[in-house]
Design a protein around this nucleic acid. Structure first.
Lengths: 142, 142
DNA sequence: TATTGTTATACTCTATAACTATA
DNA sequence: TATAGTTATAGAGTATAACAATA
């Protein structure tokens, strides 16, 4: 199907490439509690144990009312533990369980495997430049 | 917020760049009947006037049950006309109205403006290679 | 029997607003 | 007064399944 001028727009091709990449990644993660949407959250909690739900929301750019069900679902699946903050009784602090750490490691393994495929397509000698441009778009586009 | 190993994954950066690009584009289109989600549909109908809803669904990778409300909304907004197919009485053929053509042209103008910003970030001398890699990922990732 | 399109329904993900409890 | 978190609710956007009309 010919899409005319769209075919050579960077923005449009960015979207197609990301869709393809996400779909392939999501397929290979398989298990439901390893859904890619949780990846960033698990990583943020892993690297900032004891952060509050508010902090998490800021890190992943979601409203607090969206964080509540996300965290509850991960708690339900045994990936995250919620403990009252000793400093502020309004706050909840977040910690990965052992199972959460394992889930994160598993997602990371999938991500590495996935990125090996991307590296192959991009080519090692072009990867640094490609990454640089993606980061530039993220950082500077307004 | 430090995301550790994710920071240098191509897939992750693809996602961040596409999010940034989409958000900026969506903001600037403004009006509700020019929502970016309709862009591809308008373009497909523009370039294939008289196609059926089934054809449209295949082109934009959506189930027929998702095409129905999409097309109805665009008809409601006066962008698309639905006519019974003379060849197959089960089918509906799709045509852009004058207003639909105008909406498409307006979206295209926004897209060109948007892509000028992206071109600036990427740099003209690197654009061809960048596009080539994005298309390669779309086409060959499995 | 198979296909086109519609409808009913449901699921995911997101947000806004109103609320409780703290600060 | 302001903030952390919860809940109720709503709106996109998507899909599956059952259906009517037609092939």
């Amino acid at each position: 199907m010919d899409l005319g001028p769209l075919e050579d727009f960077v923005g449009f091709n960015l979207r197609l490439a990301q869709d393809a990449s996400f779909q392939v990644f999501a397929q290979h993660t398989g298990e439901p509690h390893l859904r890619p949407g949780r990846f960033a959250s698990l990583m943020v909690i892993h690297r900032n144990p004891g952060l509050t739900q508010r902090d998490l929301g800021q890190a992943i750019a979601r409203d607090k009312s969206s964080v509540t069900p996300l965290v509850k679902a991960m708690e339900q699946d045994g990936l995250v533990e919620r403990r009252p903050s000793p400093e502020d009784r309004r706050s909840v602090t977040l910690w990965l369980t052992e199972s959460g750490e394992k889930a994160l490691q598993s997602l990371l393994a999938h991500a590495r495997e996935h990125d090996r495929k991307l590296d192959e397509l991009v080519g090692l000698e072009r990867k640094a430049e490609f990454l640089r441009l993606l980061k530039k778009i993220t950082a500077e586009l307004k």
